[in-house]
C-alpha cells in the first residue's frame, strides 16, 4: 500500500514555481506548471547538487539555478546534451490537495 502524505494545496505553489517538502532524507521539490500539472522530484540537480526548487520553470522543465542544466520534470531526465537523472516521487491531486508518496 502506498502511503500518501498531504503536503498542501495546488494554490500554495505559484504557477511556474516550486515549493520544498522537507524530509529526514533530504528535500523534495514540488513543481507547478502553467497548466497546473504537479511534479515532485528530489531537490538535487544530478550535475552538482543544486536545489532545483529554486530554478525557473518553463513548459514541463526546470532550469537548475547553479549551472543552467535543464531537467524534464516528467521523466526526471536531464535534457540533452546533458546527461543525468533525478529521482521522482509519485503524487496525486484530489480536490486541489497534493498527496505525495516518499517511495521515490
Amino acid at each position: 500500500m502506498t502511503e500518501w502524505i498531504k503536503v498542501g494545496r495546488i494554490e500554495d505553489i505559484p504557477p511556474l514555481g516550486a515549493r520544498v517538502v522537507e524530509t529526514g532524507n533530504g528535500d523534495i521539490a514540488v513543481f507547478r506548471t502553467a497548466e497546473d500539472k504537479i511534479f515532485a522530484v528530489r531537490d538535487k540537480c544530478p550535475h552538482k547538487g543544486g536545489p532545483l526548487s529554486q530554478g525557473i520553470v518553463h513548459g514541463r522543465n526546470v532550469t537548475c539555478p547553479l549551472h543552467n542544466w535543464n531537467i524534464a520534470l516528467e521523466s526526471g531526465q536531464a535534457v540533452a546534451p546533458d546527461e543525468g537523472c533525478v529521482a521522482r516521487y509519485p503524487l496525486k491531486v484530489e480536490d486541489g490537495v497534493i498527496h505525495l508518496s516518499l517511495k521515490g
Partner: peptide, 11 residues
C-alpha cells in the same frame, strides 16, 4: 511569503 517557508515538513 511562500518563497521562504517550506510547503511541509515531514519527519
Amino acid at each position: 511569503k511562500h518563497e521562504f517557508i517550506p510547503l511541509k515538513h515531514v519527519s
